[in-house]
Design a protein around this nucleic acid. Structure first.
Length: 426
RNA sequence: GGAGAGGUGGCGGAGUGGCCGAACGCGCUGGUUUCGAAAACCAGUAGGCCUUCACGGGUCUCGUGGGUUCAAAUCCCACCCUCUCCGCCA
């Protein structure tokens, strides 16, 4: 969330930011509640101080004046309790509203309502001109018994799948390559829980608002399956005060990712593009609160992922995500979209976001700065590789006329040294 | 799942109703000393909120939330977490 002091000092900026994101929030109600809160806090503190000193008088009073003093205190206490109850009520209302206020987008974020308004800012490689009719990943997958949608659905419902044989191997190969690359770049490898407390979902900004998109086990255990390792990794140091000299922290984690995809019925129903579960390697950076550093990290985590996609020889473009396509927590987001022949378009494969202290403030993630002051950290994250979407891009872009698939060089070692997979299709 | 023990500051650890945001030790920071360092000695060392130009002052927080009391780290209730033993188990 945003700093309450910031909201109070710059209500128009916050409102403009929300408008740019096409998100509703009641800034004026927050201003009103904050004023009421200040008034109450002043009064409550005063009443408490007087109650305290009265208590001390009672403790040192003689036995015969004690009952009188205690009686007087009882009356004051009722008054104090009423004020405290009101204060608590105001605080709760305030927090609930604060959780709904979106982060202010950067100036460079383009205006726009949906992903159609995202602005291309970079492009690498050329979509391949096939001299044969290219097959979709699903056609290839079914021909080679690599992808089993029917049994996936039978096991787990629609939007589920089973990978078999070389496709299951290739999935591991991509994940391992992505993970190793990040470790080589100095990121600390992490293996984290994917089932987290609801509180952790709130901390990273997914709740409130994203409850429909998460699988929840909270009727019995107050736990949710994460949609990305970003959640447990960013929250790793929640409620801690880190030492400034330890920053930045750079983490890489692989995890299963679970997404309900509510409200997407009928959209991307074919193949592996939009599924309920996949594997993902994710990178997370936690650093001091500094705009320049935030921008540097943003560029660098984007570069990390570009290097992966380039090493796999996949054409891509980078888009500057517009206001309306930006989530509540982000300041700015760059998506990498990788060319997918069957879609005849670039499909989103990576999402590099920076948050300023929006997540850190919810998480209680802080550090002690050089000047001795305690501040909230800045957080960032980006996809390194998401299994299903990378598999789509790899098999579709590197397919051959006979239905075999050329394995990109970095993945060959994990594929037993083979240059191609699949037997020619008749 | 059953039985027991426990959760106090960066760490260890005292504290069983008012004098406790909290002894003592370690760590850390500054100073004295030293050619420099170590040691020794002295001083400082949690966070939130309100208030103040500032110095400061007030208040809250001893796992979390409720309760008892004029007064709670301390008593009561619920929940969360950790550890030990048993059971189950990849």
């Amino acid at each position: 969330m945003l700093d309450l002091k910031f909201i109070v000092a710059h209500p128009d900026l916050v409102k403009a930011g929300a408008a740019k994101k096409h998100i509703d929030c009641d800034v004026d109600a927050i201003l009103r509640l904050d004023e009421e809160r200040r008034e109450l806090v002043g009064k409550v503190d005063e009443a408490r101080a007087s109650s305290k000193s009265a208590g001390k008088r009672i403790a040192s009073a003689s036995p015969d004046e004690r009952p009188k003093l205690v009686e007087a205190q009882k009356a004051e206490k009722a008054e104090l309790q009423a004020m405290e109850a009101r204060q608590k009520d105001v605080d709760e209302q305030l927090r609930a509203l604060m959780l709904l206020v979106p982060n202010v987008p950067a100036d460079e974020v383009p205006e726009g309502a949906s992903d159609e308004d995202n602005v291309e800012i970079d492009r690498w490689g050329e979509p391949r001109a096939f001299d044969f009719e290219p097959r979709s990943h699903l056609e290839l997958g079914e021909a080679h018994s690599w992808i089993d949608i029917h049994r996936g659905a039978r096991l787990a419902g629609s939007r589920n799948y089973v990978l078999q044989g070389d496709m299951a191997l290739l999935e591991h190969a991509v994940m391992r390559f992505a993970f190793d690359e990040m470790v080589a770049r100095g990121f600390t490898p992490l293996s984290v829980p994917t089932l987290v407390r609801s509180e952790t979902m709130v901390g990273t900004g997914y709740f409130p608002g994203g409850e429909d998109q998460a699988y929840r086990c909270d009727d019995r255990d107050d736990l949710c399956l994460v949609g990305t390792a970003e959640v447990p990794v960013t929250a790793l140091h929640q409620d801690e005060i880190l030492s400034g000299v330890d920053l930045p922290l750079r983490f890489v984690a692989q995890s299963s990712c679970y997404r309900r995809e509510a409200g997407t019925y009928g959209k991307d129903t074919k193949g592996l593009y939009r599924v309920h579960q996949f594997q993902k390697v994710e990178q997370v950076v936690i650093d001091v609160a500094d705009e320049a550093r935030s921008r540097e990290h943003h560029a660098s985590i984007l570069a990390n992922s570009k290097a992966i996609v380039e090493a796999l020889e996949l054409p891509y473009r980078v888009v500057n995500v517009c206001g309306g396509d930006l989530g509540q927590p982000q300041v700015q987001k760059f998506d990498i979209e990788t060319w997918m022949p069957s879609r005849e378009s670039y499909g989103e494969t990576h999402s590099a976001s920076r948050f300023h202290d929006f997540q850190a403030r919810r998480l209680g993630l802080r550090y002690r700065d050089e000047d001795g002051k305690v501040r909230h950290c800045h957080t960032l994250n980006n996809t390194v590789a998401a299994s299903t979407r990378m598999l789509i891009a790899i098999v579709e872009n590197h397919q051959n006329a006979d239905g075999t698939v050329t394995v990109p060089e970095p993945l060959r070692r994990a594929m037993g040294g083979r240059e191609t997979i699949g037997t020619p299709i008749g």
